[in-house]
Design a protein around this nucleic acid. Structure first.
Lengths: 139, 139
DNA sequence: TTAGGACTCATACTAAAGTATGAAATTGAA
DNA sequence: TTCAATTTCATACTTTAGTATGAGTCCTAA
């Protein structure tokens, strides 16, 4: 993360120094005008600015919307319980969840009860909210 | 939207032309080295690139996460019903909502029933999901 | 092999959610 | 003012959700 940024900036400095030499050479030989050099530099650094900013924002976005799997473990949610939690968040009833996962409704009730305890929720709607706040399900 | 972008780019071109003149002047008078000029230009355009990119992405984000008030009207949800819908999405029970809005629990039940009909949902959890998909509540 | 965790299921219960119906008060626009 | 929509409330009911308890199965790590 930090190393990448350092590398990118190092590359930028090198590119800049190279451009210095190019500009000097160009002026001396008269191959191209100073305006062209400056324009190219401006465009290049404009593009670099856009790219770097996009990467940073993309990283932020991916980290803010990412599911916190560590949290799931910390809460002690089992694989099946997490599965049920996700279907609950989709708005399914216990009966529908039971059919979807090929188990009985009473099994789902047991799972949901355990989920509520582990998430410290009173209702399934509250569990959904808490799960989203804890970033353990998609918001 | 588009006009703003044109204006910004026009300003950039003007700034660039101004820098041309400055660079020429500086070289002639020997006030500063060509390296300094180029560095400044590079930094300025890098920053401009970052700012423009940030604005564009911010605009995208704000439009994708914005609440669709037209949809709320289309669905025929009344002011109070929408209010109840929001509290339901927070995970509150009918009783808690009643206390929060200073009305009886039966009133909330009536509202919720009407909300379910208007959102074509079978349960409140499903209503929350649908409302989020329709972008009429915060996701 | 065995102890514990995860998953399953059932029964019996309480609590909450949701439906249906009717009705009164309020409000805003024509 | 009057009419329609909104908001409010109640009662009686059905359905779904959630709790408590006990128990059987399966799998895995010690």
């Amino acid at each position: 993360m930090v190393r990448k940024t350092i590398l990118i900036f190092a590359a930028l400095v090198v590119a800049l120094l190279a451009l210095f030499q190019l500009s000097k050479y160009s002026i001396l030989t008269g191959d191209s005008s100073i305006e062209t050099i400056i324009s190219i530099i401006a465009i290049i650094f404009f593009i670099i600015g856009v790219i770097i900013n996009k990467r940073i924002l993309h990283k932020e976005k991916s980290t803010t919307n990412k599911i916190d799997y560590k949290k799931i473990e910390e809460l002690g949610l089992s694989k099946r319980e997490y599965e049920v939690l996700c279907t609950v968040a989709l708005g399914l009833s216990n009966k529908e969840i039971a059919e979807k996962l090929f188990v009985s409704e009473s099994t789902i009730k047991t799972h949901v009860s355990n989920i509520l305890i582990k998430l410290d929720a009173k209702r399934r709607t509250q569990a959904i909210q808490i799960a989203k706040e804890l970033k353990i399900i998609q918001s």
